[in-house]
Design a binder for these strands. Structure first.
Lengths: 140, 140
DNA sequence: GTGTTATATAACTAACTAGTTATCTATCCG
DNA sequence: CGGATAGATAACTAGTTAGTTATATAACAC
């Protein structure tokens, strides 16, 4: 029963947080095509080296980037692993939504049929279960 | 040629940012199963109503939640649309990484073969295109 | 050794976040 | 009408972020 542990939550926090900045996404984009040193990463961004190092730290905290030590250089590598949990989260809730959407859509269809054949004024109905829901409209 | 417009970037920023908070993800999880009012959303979280309203504003800014006006109630609905761009971003770079990973992996295999049969010291090769890359090691 | 290069770290600032309490606005009910 | 309810908004605080410049550390090159 999908018990989301605290550290999983924190990991997701860190991942989404890391992705929420365009500079960091660009860094990841660069690293996706091969490892790069800090200096190589600084070049394309109009930003100081310490600023990039800080962004890298945020990416490392999320586990999206790992460091190798090679003499005085510290090439960074992209690690896509945390992205998996991120997409899984997104897809999970997208599916839940879709299931409910389809279910309620069918319900509305059904009610429309009833309405057409019986009462012209169906009252506010409060369906069973603790789940309190209502009718999403059709897509924009 | 995937020209990422500024507002697309800002939209991605807003989406990932919205997802980077566990309270907001929980709110989305709740809304994925059907619309809910602010008061209904406040209940399960040990947090004041204005705090939840602020989180909702962040989610609305990302386009993940929309409001309906129904008398004095303002039920919120989940809108999964922005999630699509988010997963597309993630999958895109994951694929790029995978392509490079596989390519370099093959390259390393090839070099190992050459090394075994010919020179013991293959020089640093700089393959075509502007793309500057280097050799990732095998996965941990 | 000296000097240079790659990167990290410290100290600082401005802007933003996440929460609070108090209050305002608008709708509903009798 | 007057009171209760749903929610928004304002004002404030503490903590965090994203950047800066200046400096420290460590490896390399001579």
């Amino acid at each position: 029963m999908k018990a989301a542990a605290a550290h999983d939550i924190a990991r997701l926090d860190a991942t989404f947080f890391a992705l929420a900045d365009p500079t960091r996404r660009a860094i990841l984009g660069r690293l996706a095509q091969g490892e790069a040193t800090v200096n190589e990463l600084v070049a394309p961004f109009d930003m100081s080296q310490p600023a990039i190092s800080k962004h890298l730290k945020v990416l490392e905290r999320a586990g999206l980037v790992s460091v190798e030590i090679d003499g005085r250089r510290r090439p960074r590598r992209f690690d896509p692993e945390p992205l998996e949990a991120a997409t899984r989260w997104i897809e999970h809730y997208r599916e839940i939504w879709e299931a409910n959407y389809l279910r309620l859509d069918a319900l509305l269809e059904e009610l429309k049929g009833i309405e057409a054949s019986e009462e012209p004024n169906p009252p506010r109905q409060e369906p069973g279960g603790g789940t309190h829901h209502s009718s999403p409209e059709n897509g924009k």
